[in-house]
Design a protein around this nucleic acid. Structure first.
Length: 320
DNA sequence: CGCATTTGACCCGCGC
DNA sequence: GCGCGGGTCAAATGCG
């Protein structure tokens, strides 16, 4: 996921409480409002079944709306990105000598606005200090770069300690190109490159946490210059993804108010989304017990909750 | 047979 | 200048 794309959350008209089902609840307590669904299912059946179905329909509609908004955000991001590329093409940076491979890589990645710096380093500092004699256009492009650059982010995945693999299924296609044992961590660090698009230079480092071996730390460098594979081929990616639980994520300090929408969250709720599709089916005749199971599955899905909470907080931030 | 992964070698930056 | 350590390359290997 392009983390920066979540900034472009323009107008998410989430109608969290369109019906009168939960009107007794304060309007600002959206999470409680939403999660009261779980409480609902314990109410008398004759009363709650219809409300539950309505509620599920509403939740499904909201989820669809969220999905649409995410897609729109990604499209906006790609449009912005293309604009930036055009701009930078019209104001090309000075060509550097390709004598040293890694240096040229760094420079090109900086120009391409795809790569972040080294882990822990806030890139852009070097360019700022060295760009004092550059012309105005270069400065402008640099500023634009620093505005949208996705730098480095870390995602922590909870993983079975017995699972020794360093494979984190986040929806993207990665090709492993190296593995190293680092000094500060006995567990090996795996290096991955994004293989979905040839031009995508996003890299990922995966290593188990020293403190908690059941936690896998994935460090992403750069920004994908292509849409999420699930948007290109949602059916195949849905079957390919193992469900891992990202327990927290950190975004660069340069983007403190970013709402990180992790695609793994949506991927992990495949099961519940398929159920929602069933509910939305026009010829729906779902047994009561199944409805309740669906409701439970939906509301107990932490990933779904997290994604929804992220969208809501994004909306709130936008309103503020 | 083609593709992905593994793994040892090499490169390069950085600290001393 | 040298050694260390992280990162990358590319041949070998495995797998479907």
């Amino acid at each position: 996921m392009d983390y920066s794309s979540s900034w472009i959350n323009t107008s998410l008209n989430l109608n969290i409480n369109p019906h009168m089902v939960h009107q007794q609840l304060p309007k600002n307590v959206v999470e409680n409002n939403f999660f009261s669904l779980e409480m609902k299912k314990s109410s008398p059946k004759e009363e709650s079944s219809g409300a539950l179905v309505e509620e599920l329909k509403r939740v499904s509609a909201e989820n669809k709306k969220l999905t649409g908004m995410l897609t729109e955000m990604c499209e906006n991001y790609n449009t912005l990105r293309n604009n930036l590329m055009d701009y930078m093409r019209k104001n090309p940076d000075k060509e550097s000598s390709p004598s040293k491979k890694r240096k040229s890589d760094e420079i090109s990645s900086s120009n391409n606005n795809l790569m972040g710096g080294e882990v822990g380093g806030v890139n852009g500092n070097n360019s700022e200090s060295s760009s004092s004699d550059e012309d105005q256009s270069c400065k402008k492009s640099m500023e634009l770069e620093t505005c949208i650059k996705a730098k480095v982010s870390r995602v922590y995945y909870k993983q079975e300690s017995s699972d020794s693999s360093l494979i984190v299924k986040d929806g993207y296609q990665w090709r492993k190109y190296g593995q190293k044992v680092t000094r500060d961590n006995p567990s090996p660090r795996a290096y991955f490159k994004c293989s979905f698009a040839p031009s995508c230079t996003v890299k990922k480092k995966v290593q188990r946490s020293v403190e908690d071996p059941s936690v896998v730390v994935a460090t992403y460098e750069g920004e994908h210059n292509h849409p999420h594979p699930s948007q290109v081929d949602s059916t195949s990616s849905a079957t390919n993804n193992r469900c891992r639980n990202p327990i927290s994520s950190a975004v660069p300090s340069s983007a403190p108010s970013t709402v990180t929408i992790d695609w793994t969250k949506s991927k992990c709720s495949n099961e519940s989304s398929s159920k929602k599709m069933m509910i939305n089916h026009p010829k729906m005749e779902v047994p009561q017990i199944l409805v309740e199971q669906m409701a439970t599955s939906l509301t107990k899905d932490l990933n779904f909750r997290a994604a929804l909470a992220a969208a809501i907080s994004g909306k709130m931030l936008h309103q503020n």
